[in-house]
Deep mutational scan, measured.
Amino acid sequence: MSGNGNAAATAEENSPKMRVIRVGTRKSQLARIQTDSVVATLKASYPGLQFEIIAMSTTGDKILDTALSKIGEKSLFTKELEHALEKNEVDLVVHSLKDLPTVLPPGFTIGAICKRENPHDAVVFHPKFVGKTLETLPEKSVVGTSSLRRAAQLQRKFPHLEFRSIRGNLNTRLRKLDEQQEFSAIILATAGLQRMGWHNRVGQILHPEECMYAVGQGALGVEVRAKDQDILDLVGVLHDPETLLRCIAERAFLRHLEGGCSVPVAVHTAMKDGQLYLTGGVWSLDGSDSIQETMQATIHVPAQHEDGPEDDPQLVGITARNIPRGPQLAAQNLGISLANLLLSKGAKNILDVARQLNDAH
């Protein structure tokens, strides 16, 4: 009898209710805020589980004197976190989706994509230029951005401005803007500013005609071990179906173009009346040469937790077992079709030249 009692006690200790789920994140304040929001949602869904947040620095956090596009290494903000995932030191990792490459290392998958916040870019102005827009900034004003995508589009749109690289986390960039006289304004992701509670610093939100956004911008991705079915089931509740389908289309477009950090590629997606609209573009580094096109596809946005595919093969690095396969494939095909259209119009040449120029500098 006593033996059975011990077995029952052991089973209770090993039951999922007692389990601590370890969540990996970057150390920056924004990353911690984003991770806290994901953990809060998981806690609400699984009140019996405990969650421990483990923060670590990544290569991208450490190399702050070089433009991201020049470092010449993929997975700048993800490699150390993936290493911890691989060694079973954490069970899942919360990322900004735009930091996750469209091809993940073997053994990993994006197990959830959370509801997207505003994906557009924002302009934050130096205190002396508050009330201005990019259009009304004085001639030769210097605007800071760490992104080739932003610089290429904005140089084309605002030729009277000069664009220079600015690195560091959000706090560091804002301090550089406010305390030094080098920059009249800087460009940042609206979602990051909003998550930090800095709505009052948003001086201008850039519309798609001015600057399309990065693939996955404004959404959070939760990376897990691809074979860890328990954790895949656990994080599945975080999937937002519309965000998922938009981001599958965007990531398929980028992957098929073979774009990345070192080339200016941008997108804009919208879901309306059962249609998914995808606009994508590529630019030369100075913005003088560009190709942009829009395509659409009829896609039914499923309700969360309709029964999805059981075999769960990944699409552009994403596993969404609780979302039907048909809409996911339709979104992926839309991204591939748009990429093929741009490639047929000469996108590869623009991107190759951009890559060579970026590598040469």
Results as ranks from 00 to 15, higher is better:
residue 20 V to P: 10
residue 22 R to D: 05
residue 25 T to R: 08
residue 28 S to E: 01
residue 29 Q to R: 13
residue 33 I to Q: 08
residue 38 V to S: 05
residue 42 L to V: 07
residue 43 K to R: 11
residue 44 A to S: 12
residue 46 Y to D: 10
residue 48 G to M: 06
residue 48 G to T: 12
residue 53 I to D: 09
residue 57 S to D: 14
residue 58 T to M: 11
residue 58 T to E: 11
residue 60 G to R: 04
residue 65 D to A: 07
residue 68 L to G: 07
residue 69 S to W: 09
residue 75 S to H: 08
residue 76 L to W: 09
residue 77 F to A: 04
residue 80 E to M: 10
residue 80 E to D: 14
residue 82 E to D: 10
residue 87 K to S: 13
residue 91 D to N: 13
residue 92 L to D: 00
residue 96 S to G: 10
residue 99 D to A: 04
residue 105 P to R: 10
residue 114 C to K: 07
residue 115 K to E: 11
residue 116 R to C: 07
residue 117 E to T: 06
residue 118 N to H: 12
residue 120 H to C: 12
residue 120 H to A: 05
residue 122 A to H: 04
residue 123 V to C: 07
residue 124 V to L: 10
residue 124 V to G: 05
residue 126 H to D: 11
residue 129 F to E: 15
residue 130 V to Q: 11
residue 131 G to C: 07
residue 135 E to H: 04
residue 137 L to F: 07
residue 139 E to C: 14
residue 141 S to Y: 08
residue 141 S to G: 11
residue 142 V to W: 09
residue 143 V to P: 03
residue 146 S to A: 09
residue 146 S to K: 04
residue 147 S to T: 06
residue 149 R to N: 02
residue 152 A to F: 04
residue 154 L to I: 05
residue 155 Q to A: 14
residue 157 K to S: 11
residue 160 H to P: 10
residue 163 F to M: 11
residue 164 R to C: 10
residue 167 R to K: 06
residue 172 T to M: 05
residue 173 R to A: 03
residue 174 L to N: 04
residue 176 K to P: 01
residue 179 E to V: 14
residue 181 Q to M: 10
residue 181 Q to T: 13
residue 187 I to E: 03
residue 189 A to Q: 03
residue 202 V to W: 04
residue 204 Q to D: 04
residue 204 Q to C: 00
residue 204 Q to P: 10
residue 205 I to P: 02
residue 205 I to F: 01
residue 211 C to P: 01
residue 212 M to K: 00
residue 215 V to I: 04
residue 216 G to T: 02
residue 217 Q to Y: 07
residue 217 Q to L: 03
residue 219 A to R: 03
residue 224 V to R: 03
residue 225 R to P: 14
residue 226 A to N: 02
residue 227 K to C: 01
residue 228 D to R: 13
residue 232 L to S: 03
residue 232 L to N: 13
residue 234 L to A: 14
residue 235 V to D: 01
residue 238 L to N: 00
residue 247 C to G: 05
residue 247 C to H: 00
residue 248 I to K: 00
residue 249 A to G: 02
residue 251 R to V: 08
residue 254 L to K: 01
residue 254 L to Q: 12
residue 258 E to V: 15
residue 261 C to S: 01
residue 261 C to Q: 03
residue 264 P to W: 03
residue 266 A to I: 04
residue 269 T to Y: 01
residue 273 D to S: 04
residue 275 Q to E: 07
residue 276 L to W: 02
residue 276 L to Y: 13
residue 278 L to H: 03
residue 279 T to Y: 11
residue 282 V to N: 03
residue 287 G to Q: 00
residue 289 D to W: 13
residue 289 D to A: 13
residue 290 S to N: 10
residue 291 I to R: 15
residue 292 Q to H: 14
residue 296 Q to T: 06
residue 297 A to K: 01
residue 297 A to S: 06
residue 298 T to A: 09
residue 300 H to F: 14
residue 305 H to W: 09
residue 308 G to R: 07
residue 310 E to Q: 15
residue 310 E to R: 13
residue 312 D to M: 07
residue 314 Q to M: 01
residue 314 Q to E: 14
residue 316 V to E: 05
residue 316 V to I: 10
residue 317 G to R: 04
residue 324 P to G: 06
residue 325 R to N: 05
residue 328 Q to M: 15
residue 330 A to F: 07
residue 330 A to D: 12
residue 330 A to P: 09
residue 332 Q to E: 08
residue 333 N to S: 01
residue 334 L to F: 09
residue 340 N to E: 01
residue 347 A to C: 05
residue 350 I to E: 00
residue 352 D to V: 08
residue 353 V to I: 06
residue 357 L to S: 15
